[in-house]
C-alpha cells in the first residue's frame, strides 16, 4: 500500500477568526478556529494548516494562544504559518503545539533561515510556502514567479528553481499556492504544480483555487501533489472532508478512510 494522499483543510485566521476571501480580499467569517479545527479533526482531515493572515505583529500572542488550544484537541499534524520571520518565531509556534511551521516571505529575504531552521528543528517541521503567479503571456512558454504581499508584489524569482533551492536548503515540504487561482474556485494551477512536484524530492502540497471535489483529485492525479489544501469548500459546509476522501478514493487515489 502506498502512502495516502493527504487532505489538508486550511484555516486562514485574521485576528482570531477563520476567514476566507477571494484573492485575499477578505469577505466571509467562517468561525472560531478551535471549533473549526475540531470539526475537521472529527471529519477525518489528515492534517490542518493554520495561516495567520493578521497584518500586524501585535496579534502574535492571540495566534500562539489559539494554536495552543487547537493542539490540545486535535490529534493530527498541525502546520502554522503567517508572519514567521525568525528562529524565535518558529520555536514559539512549535512550543505552542505546532508540528510544522510554514515560512514564506522570510525565506525570500533570508534563505538561510530555512537552512538554520531545518538544522535546528529538523527538516520535518519546516515547510516553505511558495506563492506564485504566471508571468508569461498566452502562447509563450509558461513561466511562474514568486509574489509576496498576498500576490501584489513581484519578486522576479522563478518558481521551479526556487523550489529546488528551498529543498536543497533543507525544507521538508513545499506549500505551493497559485495566487492567480486562490479564492477563484477554478481549480489548482496544474502546470506549475506538476513542474514543481517533478522538480523536487520532498512532498508538495497544492493550494489555491479548489472549488469542487474533482479539483482535489486533479491536484493529485494531474498535478502530482502529495497533499491538497483547501479552505472554502470545507468551511461553508458544501463538502465534508469525509466526502472529499471518499470521492478521491473512488478515483483510485490511496486515502486514509
Amino acid at each position: 500500500m502506498a502512502l495516502a494522499k493527504r487532505i489538508i483543510p486550511c484555516l486562514d485566521v485574521d485576528q482570531g477568526r477563520v476567514v476566507k476571501g477571494v484573492n485575499f480580499v477578505g469577505i466571509r467569517d467562517a468561525g472560531d478556529p478551535v471549533e473549526v479545527a475540531r470539526r475537521y479533526n472529527d471529519e477525518g482531515a489528515d492534517e490542518i494548516t493554520f495561516l495567520d493572515i493578521t497584518a500586524s505583529h501585535e496579534e502574535r500572542d492571540t495566534t500562539v494562544n489559539t494554536v495552543e488550544q487547537i493542539a490540545r484537541e486535535v490529534f493530527i499534524p498541525l502546520t502554522v504559518g503567517g508572519g514567521i520571520r525568525s528562529l524565535q518565531d518558529i520555536r514559539a509556534m512549535l512550543n505552542a503545539g505546532a508540528d510544522k511551521v510554514s515560512i514564506n516571505t522570510a525565506a525570500i529575504h533570508h534563505p538561510e533561515l530555512v537552512s538554520d531552521a531545518s538544522a535546528r528543528f529538523g527538516s520535518q517541521c519546516i515547510v516553505v510556502a511558495i506563492d506564485v503567479k504566471r508571468v508569461s503571456g498566452p502562447g509563450d512558454p509558461p513561466r511562474y514567479e514568486l509574489f509576496t504581499h498576498g500576490g501584489r508584489k513581484p519578486t522576479g524569482i522563478e518558481a521551479v528553481e526556487w523550489a529546488r533551492r528551498m529543498a536543497a536548503l533543507g525544507a521538508g515540504e513545499l506549500l505551493l499556492t497559485s495566487m492567480d487561482r486562490d479564492g477563484t474556485r477554478d481549480g489548482f494551477e496544474l502546470t506549475i504544480t506538476r513542474a514543481i512536484t517533478d522538480a523536487v524530492d520532498i512532498p508538495v502540497i497544492a493550494s489555491g483555487g479548489v472549488g469542487t471535489l474533482q479539483h482535489l483529485a486533479d491536484g493529485v492525479t494531474q498535478g502530482g501533489a502529495d497533499a491538497v489544501l483547501a479552505a472554502s469548500i470545507f468551511h461553508f459546509g458544501e463538502h465534508t472532508v469525509g466526502e472529499a476522501k471518499a470521492f478521491m478514493a473512488d478515483q483510485g487515489i490511496p486515502m486514509r478512510l
Binding site: M1, L3, D46, D201, P203, D226
Partner: peptide
C-alpha cells in the same frame, strides 16, 4: 516509482 523522503504522511 519515485518515493519522496522524508517518508511523510499516513502509511499502513
Amino acid at each position: 516509482e519515485r518515493l519522496k523522503v522524508p517518508h511523510m504522511g499516513w502509511n499502513t
